[in-house]
Amino acid sequence: MRGSRVQAVSAELGNERLDIVIWDDDPAKLLINAMGPAEIGSIVLDEESQTMEVAVAKESLAQAIGKNGQNVRLCSQITGWKLNVIDKDAEEEEDSASINVSDSLKEYLDVDDDLAQILIEEGFDSLDKISNSSIESLSSVEEFDEEIAEALIDRAKEALLTLAMEISTEDDESSEEDIMAVEGVDMNLALELSQKGIKTRDDLAELSVDELQDLIDIEEEQAGSLIMKAREHWF
């Protein structure tokens, strides 16, 4: 009889439900087999800590984690690895935001990919932070000396001044596309958004709340309000 062995084992265990998992020596493949049918987008293995970061599609997240984390615990026991399950869509949004910041620094500071990434990793991820930092704090970064630090600070200040002049000119022209036309956006916020590539009302309107929060430090309620104000001209 089909499944007779499974039924026999189940009966011995007091009719406990049994799930059959196809074994694989590769821990990532074994995890995919164990976590199915949840849709896994990517798996990053850290051999040293025996940890897997598992990016799962949003619609499969609850299924992958299980009630009170039961599925994750079982999969961890099966694979012998610690599991960190994350939302794949949220991870992609974070990656996109990181790319936007990197592109902004490269454009305004005239630096290459490597230098932009170093700045981001060290917490200097905006023109404001760089322009307001001291030569001592920037030159404390291993890859920078005082000459590089001073040049970066000067370039950041020049870029902010240029952006402020551009925004001021657009404001004088009272353009409906101007981001300053959005209620709640002042010069400081406009400058911060411009550094992230958000320069027009439509740029802001096309963002989701999560995307805006990834770009700047802003409360969820304020982010939602700004986006809705930016979209008012659509209706």
Rank of each mutant, 00 (worst) to 15 (best):
I153E: 11
S126T: 13
D171T: 14
K229I: 00
M228V: 02
K196V: 06
I118H: 05
E142Y: 11
D24V: 01
I22T: 10
A64V: 00
D19I: 06
L74A: 10
Q222G: 03
Q50V: 02
V9T: 14
A90Q: 01
I120Q: 12
E92A: 13
I86S: 00
L61A: 05
L83V: 01
M165I: 10
E220Y: 13
G197H: 03
S4N: 08
K196E: 03
L204G: 00
E146H: 05
I216V: 11
A205K: 00
D46P: 09
V111K: 09
E166W: 00
D172F: 05
I99F: 13
I135D: 14
L115C: 06
D89Y: 04
A34G: 11
I148A: 07
A190Q: 07
K82W: 07
Q77E: 15
E166F: 02
A28P: 00
V21I: 11
E173L: 06
L189K: 10
S4P: 00
L127P: 03
N33W: 14
A62V: 01
L138E: 08
K106F: 03
E136F: 01
K67C: 04
E219S: 07
L115V: 01
I198V: 09
S208D: 10
G41K: 10
L189G: 11
S126L: 01
D25K: 14
E93V: 06
D95W: 13
Y108H: 14
E59H: 11
E158M: 12
A57F: 12
L161C: 06
D24R: 14
N71G: 01
I179Q: 08
F144G: 00
L74Q: 15
Q70L: 08
L31P: 06
L160H: 05
Q70M: 11
D113C: 05
I153C: 02
G36C: 13
S134A: 01
E12F: 09
I179N: 12
Q77P: 00
E221Y: 12
W234E: 10
A55Q: 12
E176V: 02
A90N: 11
